[in-house]
Design a protein around this nucleic acid. Structure first.
Length: 261
DNA sequence: ATGCCCGAGAACCTCGGA
């Protein structure tokens, strides 16, 4: 089972990149963030022609998340429980595994937060609190759970190209890292770190300046596995190739592979 | 310095992103 997460920063602009990536990597599940399109604009038929089912929740201009899957998902949910939020940031569904068990796949586009003293940061904290409650419930019901997405938080300094420059700043602050760790304490593990101890490994690079060429990036796109799924994982890596293409997303895919089908 | 670049919407600028 191959699962990938990719913030495409407008699916309309990136649909060819996504299509090429699907054909060359053949993931079982591809979780997308920042669709920036309404549901009636989602290219269901196009992905169907490539052999993928689509589950999605979108809105005009901002946000939007989708899960593309070789087999259709069941029990799809597009709202965090007990949280009325017009921002389309959450989608979850059940994928059937070959051994008859079920995998709960959860795909999120977490709020940016903008700055620690911003109203948007209050929203970020509130949103993560709701996600944590949701994941506690999800994990209690589904030993096989994988939570992926753009978390807009670097787990640690090693995930930031210049910790001194970013110290205390949004995405790299202690309070955000505590929020992420508190979420992970529910029983979720950073799959990438099972296989890679080194730093300077990023999933996002600023468009501005020479961000990518200078490797000025952050590792904010994560694949968090439940204990049972972490045990099944045999690879997790960042695929930088799409970031090198013409007119790329500022994020690139993160991929995890599991022994279980 | 809250900028550099990018996408969307409306419209040639603003907002939001990270």
């Amino acid at each position: 089972m191959k699962i990938a997460s990719w913030n495409v920063n407008s699916l309309r602009v990136r649909v060819e990149h996504v299509s090429d990536w699907l054909e060359s990597h053949s993931p079982d599940l591809l979780c997308l963030q920042e669709l920036k399109m309404t549901d009636d604009e989602f290219p269901v038929d196009h992905f169907q022609s490539l052999g993928y089912h689509s589950a999605f929740t979108g809105q005009k201009t901002y946000n939007g998340v989708a899960i593309l899957s070789k087999k259709p998902l069941t029990n799809v949910v597009t709202d965090l429980p007990d949280y009325s939020d017009p921002m389309r940031r959450y989608i979850a569904g059940d994928a059937q595994l070959s051994n008859g068990e079920t995998l709960r796949i959860v795909n999120v586009y977490c709020p940016n937060g903008q700055a620690l003293d911003s109203d948007k940061f209050i929203y970020k904290r509130e949103w993560f609190a709701k996600l944590q409650t949701a994941m506690r419930d999800t994990l209690s019901k589904n030993p096989n759970t994988v939570l992926v997405g753009d978390f807009n938080i670097t787990p640690a300094n090693i995930d930031c190209h210049d910790p001194a420059r970013w110290a205390g700043k949004i995405h790299c602050s202690d309070i955000e890292r505590l929020i992420l760790q508190t979420l992970m304490n529910e029983g979720l593990y950073d799959t990438y770190r099972k296989f890679h101890a080194e730093g300077d490994q990023f999933s996002w690079w600023d468009y501005r300046g020479a961000g990518y060429r200078a490797n000025e990036g952050l590792r904010i796109d994560l694949i968090l596995s439940s204990s049972a799924m972490l045990d099944q994982s045999h690879d997790c890596h960042i695929d930088e190739a799409p970031r090198k293409l013409e007119r790329p997303s500022d994020h690139t895919p993160v991929v995890a592979e599991y022994r279980i089908d």
